[in-house]
Structures are given as structure tokens and as C-alpha cells.
Amino acid sequence: MAKLLYAFSTSLDGFIAGPGGDMSWLTPHLGPDPVVDELIPRIGALLVGRRTYGGDDPHRGTEGEGKAFGGGWAGPQFVLTHRPAAPAPDVTFVSDLREAVGKAKEAAGDKYVNVLGADIARQCLEAGLLDEILALPVPVLLGDGVRMFDRPGGEPVELELLRPHWYRVR
């Protein structure tokens, strides 16, 4: 059965996006990455937040075509939202978290469902649905933006190291 994975690039100070969700900071750091190259064929579906789906991204404009990872991946995407966008191939808009996770896991088969978006990842974690986390550090300090995980007043989350930068949620 599919596992839910939150895989993301992060600045060394813990931001996955700049102020306002700006992803342009990542563009100079894109390129061959053996971890990403190994991960992409293991992804069977995406679970995406609405802001991430239509956000400011280095590959903005391809979201309606299902082209994640700069066009290196294509397949079913499940966008968690109360504001559906225009229909797009392989994109399903769902308003309930558990329903979205269930549909994404079914579509992924025995591969990963990759979570895109910090808020969706937080919701999955709080609901006990997130299985693994892969944090890909990028050698830059942003100083401000969207944190990879933000839960003010929340309890610590215990993780088990599976391999460098890859963790199982306990």
C-alpha cells in the first residue's frame, strides 16, 4: 500500500518558500540530484495544497498539465481545496483531507504519495496520516518565508532516521 511522504527542498534556516510563497529562490539550485532522481519513479501520486498547486513556483504554468518536478514526473494529482481551479488532466480537486489521502493512496498503488505544501503536510501529520519525511537541504539562508513545518504551541514530533535526510514519523 502507498505511503504518504512529505518530500521538500528547504533552506538551511528551515524555509521551503520565500515570503508570500515565492519559490524563485530555488531556481539557481535546481539540477541533477541523485536522491530526487531515485525518488521520482517511486512517486505514484501527488497530494497538493491549493496554494502550492497555483503558487509562485519555478515551473509555474505547468500545474494544469500535471508536470511536477520540472516536468520530470507526470501522474495523478489530488489538490486539497475548497476553491477548485479549471479542470486539468490527471488533477482531481477534493475538499476533505481523509478523502484526498485515500484517493491519492489508491491511485499511487504501492508507490509513494508525495505531499506538496507545508500546510497540507502539517494537516496530514496532525491527523496521523503522514508516514515519512524527506528534507532536501539547499545551501542558502532565506531569513523569511514559509517554514517547512510550523505549528505554534504544538508538541514535538518524534522521527526515526531511515537514511540521511529521510525519516519515518513515529
Rank of each mutant, 00 (worst) to 15 (best):
T92K: 09
Y53Q: 01
V48K: 02
L129P: 13
E155R: 14
D57H: 15
D96A: 14
L134R: 06
H165C: 11
G66T: 00
H165S: 11
R147V: 05
G143L: 02
L134V: 09
M23H: 05
A68K: 04
A127S: 13
T92D: 10
G14I: 09
H29E: 03
W73L: 07
E106N: 06
V113M: 08
A104I: 06
G20P: 03
P19C: 03
G75E: 05
R168C: 04
G14Y: 10
A108H: 01
P156I: 08
F15C: 01
G71R: 08
D33C: 10
G117E: 09
P41L: 09
A135R: 14
P164K: 07
A100T: 12
E38V: 03
K111Y: 07
V146W: 00
P164F: 10
H82A: 14
L116R: 02
V140A: 06
I16W: 01
P137Y: 03
G75L: 09
Q123G: 01
L116E: 15
R168L: 08
H29K: 01
L142F: 04
D110I: 00
P19E: 02
L4M: 07
P34S: 14
F93Q: 03
P164S: 07
Y6L: 00
S24W: 00
D96W: 03
E155N: 13
T52I: 04
S9E: 14
R60T: 09
L130F: 13
W73D: 10
K105A: 05
G70Y: 11
D33Q: 00
E155S: 14
G55C: 04
Q77H: 13
P89M: 07
T52H: 06
R163T: 10
R122T: 12
V140I: 15
P84Y: 09
R122H: 11
V94H: 07
G18W: 05
D22A: 09
A107C: 06
A2G: 04
P84G: 10
L46I: 13
P76M: 00
F69E: 09
Q77S: 15
P32S: 14
G154T: 13
S11P: 07
L162R: 12
A127Q: 14
F93K: 06
P87R: 09
L130Q: 10
P139G: 01
R50K: 05
F15R: 05
A2W: 04
R170C: 11
L161S: 13
G109N: 08
L39G: 08
D119R: 14
P156D: 12
K105N: 01
I120H: 06
Q123R: 15
E160P: 05
V115C: 12
G44H: 05
A127P: 11
G55M: 05
G117M: 03
D131G: 11
L30K: 06
D150W: 15
W166A: 06
A127G: 12
G21P: 00
Y167Q: 06
